[in-house]
């Protein structure tokens, strides 16, 4: 069974299940954030997410978020197999199931998600992502923090597989605990500073799907990264 909502944060575990969290106490400033401020931040996050074409779905707990990820992968349009030098044949691709990458889930969570995927006929994988740089319908990751005023999810400390999956999939499903949503970058500063103090780190602020306006300034989603971003907002959201 998946861990309960907030389990990662409360135990100081990184979202990818690694004990790399910069702040051993908590990922977000939930200790400093009143529940009222948090509710306001979550409401703002949802409003701003709509402005950057991020789909927010609200789920009660992590298992529900994983259910959604499996469903999204199953229902996705088949991902394009981009030329990557991978030695697959056309026949393999035509007959292959939809794929969902979830590289850094804990073993228990991965086992739960694998069960859901099996029911829906979705192939689940952990990696190595370097061998799967295209043809990936969806990926699931967990965000460490949400910055409400720009609808930004902050990912950090992922393994390479976790990072790559979030870049090459067509739909990126990001689990974000509602309690980890803060007002703005300023409120997330302590987190960023701690993250950059580490010996090595790759921190990503993600606010929507990959986009470009480079041709005639027409906004087009899905250039090099995901075509869609879905944020599964976990836990009470103030509605």
């Amino acid at each position: 069974m998946p861990q309960k909502p907030g389990a990662y944060g409360a135990q100081g575990l990184g979202p990818c299940g690694l004990n790399l969290c910069p702040n051993g106490e908590a990922m977000a400033s939930d200790a400093n954030q009143t529940s009222e401020a948090n509710l306001e931040a979550v409401a703002l996050f949802k409003k701003k997410a709509a402005e950057v074409s991020t789909l927010v779905i609200e789920v009660p707990d992590l298992s529900a978020a994983l259910d959604q990820a499996a469903r999204i992968a199953a229902q996705a349009d088949p991902a394009e197999r981009l030329p990557t030098g991978s030695p697959q044949t056309a026949r393999e691709i035509a007959g292959s199931p939809k794929r969902l990458a979830a590289p850094d889930l804990s073993e228990a969570d991965y086992a739960y998600l694998a069960g859901r995927c099996q029911e829906l006929g979705v192939e689940i994988l952990k990696g190595p992502m370097r061998e799967r740089l295209s043809g990936l319908e969806a990926a699931f990751s967990l965000a460490s923090l949400g910055l409400a005023d720009t609808a930004t999810c902050v990912m950090e400390n992922e393994t390479e597989d976790c990072r790559l999956a979030s870049m090459v999939c067509e739909t990126h499903v990001l689990g974000l605990y509602a309690k980890d949503v803060v007002q703005d970058g300023q409120a997330g500063l302590a987190f960023l500073e701690a993250a950059l103090d580490r010996e090595r780190n790759f921190v990503s602020f993600i606010s929507g799907a990959s986009r470009t306006s480079d041709i005639e300034r027409v906004l087009t989603l899905g250039v090099h990264g995901p075509l869609r971003l879905v944020v599964a907002l976990i836990g009470p959201s103030g509605d």
């Binding site: 950057v52 390479e160 993250a195 580490r198 090595r200 780190n201 790759f202 602020f205 993600i206 986009r211």
Partner: peptide, 21 residues
């Protein structure tokens, strides 16, 4: 620059993040 609240991605890199390459 583009009247966006933030760019879609902001990547912060320090040290040598683990890599398969």
């Amino acid at each position: 620059a583009t009247a966006q609240p933030i760019t879609t991605y902001v990547s912060w890199i320090t040290g040598l993040p683990p890599s398969g390459q």
